[in-house]
Design a protein around this nucleic acid. Sequence first.
DNA 1: CCGGATCCACTAGGATACTG
DNA 2: CAGTATCCTAGTGGATCCGG
Lengths: 202, 202
Amino acid sequence: MKTYGQFCGLARALDHVGDRWTLLIVRELLIEARRYSQIREALPGVATNLLADRLRSLEADGLIWKRPDGTYCLTAFGRRLEGAIHELVRWGAEWMSAGRGSDHFRPQWLAVALGALLAAETVGGVEIHADDEVLHVTDGRVSLGPLERPDAVIRGSAEDILAVAAGMLPISALSVRGDSNAVTQLMRRRDNVGSTTTFSDT
Amino acid sequence: MKTYGQFCGLARALDHVGDRWTLLIVRELLIEARRYSQIREALPGVATNLLADRLRSLEADGLIWKRPDGTYCLTAFGRRLEGAIHELVRWGAEWMSAGRGSDHFRPQWLAVALGALLAAETVGGVEIHADDEVLHVTDGRVSLGPLERPDAVIRGSAEDILAVAAGMLPISALSVRGDSNAVTQLMRRRDNVGSTTTFSDT
DNA sequence: CCGGATCCACTAGGATACTG
DNA sequence: CAGTATCCTAGTGGATCCGG
């Protein structure tokens, strides 16, 4: 990308992660370390050379790192984009209410969405079965895989779980077992989500 | 921009604000409502047709609104991007340490940078004279213009003030009058800024 | 099969000239 | 002043091919 040539944090940030696909690559690696072909299949439509280009740039900029086993992995610096990505996910939740339509969907994306949308102050562990994917939430952090002794277990389609987290469906749309208190506490959405578009001055 | 076609908050957000220049336009309107030509001169290098395109899209998406007097103004929905922009500014602070170089710089950009970098819990008012620009901070919010009864007044070049806020220079690089306590409290940077790039696993 | 590289058609972006 | 109209270039998308 051509640099904006502005001495401004936003412009400098966009100089490095403002390119098309770049933040989506970071999103994938935020979920877990991935191989080239795993990233590619998670990003339908990306050209192979473009993905290779982006990975090279991200590595040169110190955001990602290629492990000896061939998986790409975020550095600590790259992971510090999580806050910005979560903010964008929360803002983008507004555009989710139009429904899925014919868009692609991967259950793993739930990990990022839930990390951004769920209440951070949750105590205890909740296991989530979304379609065939299993993930869990502890202390407001979302990770892939099951939990040893979950306080509650939620089951539903990934789409429904996402819709509940985004406030588009009531919690009753999901099957919940165990401590239902932990679940309602978990699903209390963060700020900055779901207000209607209004026009104001100043 | 071509849509990513992904049912994901991040992808949907980028479908609307991921285009080149778009977030910088939002940044300008976050500072204050602006006319077409004011936006253009704040974004050196933007093509006139491109700016017109972006403004049309942003208006169609309900992020901005054209007032009867011809100034473009953020809607409440558009202003909800402030959190994401602040996060990007904080992340981008890492790239500011390379110095200004030959990049453009506008004193007004300080308003956004300070809003992102300064401690939000500040009490009292601090007036900032950056070159010929005057702005002030109250309750962690930054606005253009002077303050009625400031607790402290900071003077310096906009570049130095930015550098202090980003932690690249000590507070002693600036001239401070009044309650120096309020100033040191103000300049205590938020999290997520300034750690060195390290490589870690997992 | 994985991890790309190469080629080509297409589209978005950049620079400048021009207009109501 | 606030854009529109062009032209040209760089970046993107899609398909295919290639070496390990």
